[in-house]
Amino acid sequence: MKADFSEEQKYIRAKKKVEEIKGFYWNLLSYCLVIPFLIFINLKTSPGYHWFWFPMLGWGIGIIIHGFNTFGVNIILGRAWEERKIKELMDKEKFK
């Protein structure tokens, strides 16, 4: 029974990872579509003031962090604490 549980956990983790990767790529795609549109709008309406840099840089930093988290390079908060907490909670459930 434990082997089935382990395989089920592996499947759930793999499915979650695929969802994270899809989310990253959708975020990147929307960035690549929206930012050029904002640049176009900015340069057509007020070419003297380039406000498009603010959303471009802010969203870009967000995408970089999202990519680091998605592909395993955790700079801000590591996921080791998540793994430890999951194991701790699973062990508690096992002994109840």
Rank of each mutant, 00 (worst) to 15 (best):
I39D: 13
Y49E: 08
H66Q: 08
C32V: 04
A14G: 01
P36M: 14
E20L: 06
G58D: 15
I86L: 03
P36W: 12
L28F: 02
L33G: 02
L89V: 00
I76G: 00
I61D: 13
K2V: 09
K92G: 00
P47N: 12
R84A: 12
I75W: 05
R13K: 06
F40N: 11
I35N: 10
A14I: 10
F71K: 02
H66L: 06
S46Q: 14
E83C: 01
N74G: 05
F40W: 11
I61T: 10
Y11V: 15
W51V: 08
N27L: 00
N27F: 00
I64M: 13
G78L: 09
K22L: 01
L77E: 02
I63C: 04
E93P: 01
D4A: 08
K87Q: 04
K96N: 05
A80C: 06
W59Y: 13
G78C: 03
D4N: 15
K15T: 08
K16E: 04
S30F: 13
R79N: 06
K10V: 14
R79Y: 05
I76L: 04
I64E: 14
L29T: 09
K16M: 09
A80W: 07
L57R: 07
I63Q: 03
K92R: 03
M90I: 01
K22V: 01
L33T: 12
F68I: 08
V34L: 14
K85T: 05
R13I: 05
W81M: 01
C32A: 07
N42I: 06
S6P: 15
H66E: 07
N74E: 11
G48S: 13
G67C: 13
W26Q: 05
K87L: 03
A80D: 08
I61C: 12
S6R: 08
K15G: 15
R13E: 03
K94S: 01
R84Y: 07
V73S: 09
P47S: 13
K16V: 04
H66M: 07
K2W: 00
I76W: 09
W51A: 11
G62K: 04
L43K: 09
L89G: 14
F24R: 00
N74H: 12
N74Q: 12
V34I: 06
I76Y: 04
M90T: 01
D4Q: 15
T45Y: 13
G78R: 14
G78H: 12
Y25D: 09
K2Y: 03
K92H: 02
L38R: 05
F54Y: 14
F40D: 15
F71M: 05
E83N: 03
K85S: 03
Q9T: 04
K10H: 02
A14C: 03
K87A: 02
F24Y: 02
W51E: 09
L43P: 05
Y25I: 09
M56D: 11
R79M: 04
D91R: 09
C32P: 13
I61K: 13
Y49A: 11
L29D: 06
R84I: 11
E82Q: 07
K85P: 06
G60A: 09
E83W: 00
G78I: 14
F54E: 08
Y11G: 10
G62F: 10
G67D: 04
N27Y: 00
I65P: 00
G62V: 01
R13H: 05
K2G: 14
